[in-house]
Design a protein around this nucleic acid. Structure first.
Lengths: 141, 141
DNA sequence: TTTATCTTTGCGAATGATTATCATTTTCGT
DNA sequence: ACGAAAATGATAATCATTCGCAAAGATAAA
């Protein structure tokens, strides 16, 4: 597998914007994250990134994830019953429904809940920095 | 440290109600959980329970926690930046504010948010089984 | 209460995820 | 292209959690 020049340029400037050095391993990993439609764990990301850039190691996957999380480019999740899973941050915030039967993760967002959260935090004397809302559900029917 | 007979009876019947066998290790651990005002991790629970019942081992702490979580008597949390933390389930559900400076965890609950969550899940074709809402905040002032 | 069965326990080893070490290679401003 | 600083792969180390097993304990029936 190989990524085209247009994708590469986009990823490189994302890294630059995030204020981190550009390496081929980081490009590969961020490319994989950017194109993932699911919420993979570190090993899965390692496998997928290895297809693009075989020189990447698992240690670098973890290190790069930390760097990108620090730069707010990536989010880490700890859904129930498994290890950490990752996704590229998107323009607008969203929360997650976790299907208890399949493990599938679906995104949603609610302006109203976001607003109430701010109010609750303020009432209790806190400034809300970020939050996590996870709905554990089963499909109806 | 030693627990009085009244406390002991209460804990024992909680365990019976939960449908699990009663052992002195389980009594000690549930007693500690019941009296904890914070959200301790497994090691901390092990330390505290050891004061009441020195024969308890860390393996049994983990095993008992699993049993009690299965029985819905205890909840497990994975707040950002640390291992699992535990608390005894209370009558009414609540969510958590995590103080990003101190790590302190404060409880709150919002009827409105709970209601909207149900609606969102339903809209997307899901039945809401349970949920987690974590607000990561900094104190104002 | 004695027995018989099934469960739980402590210990220590095993596992799985993540992080640290370190010598080497790479990035990037000059 | 040069050099300082940062990133990398390989592997060892760490940390939380689980497993395997022989011994001890809990429960229900007699």
């Amino acid at each position: 597998m190989k990524l085209n020049q247009k994708d590469e340029l986009l990823i490189v400037s994302s890294l630059r914007d995030a204020g981190v050095r550009v390496t081929k391993q980081r490009v590969a990993l961020l490319y994989i994250l950017d194109n993932a439609k699911d919420h993979p764990d570190a090993i899965e990301l390692y496998k997928r990134a290895s297809e693009v850039e075989p020189t990447i190691s698992l240690a670098t996957v973890y290190r790069t994830l930390s760097v990108l999380i620090e730069a707010k480019v990536v989010h880490r999740h700890s859904f129930e019953g498994g290890g950490a899973r990752f996704e590229k941050a998107k323009r607008l915030h969203h929360d997650h429904i976790v299907d208890l039967n399949t493990g599938e993760v679906i995104e949603f967002n609610s302006e109203i809940i976001e607003k109430i959260q701010f109010e609750i935090a303020a009432e209790m004397g806190y400034e809300l920095i970020h939050h996590k809302l996870e709905l554990y559900c089963r499909k109806i029917n």
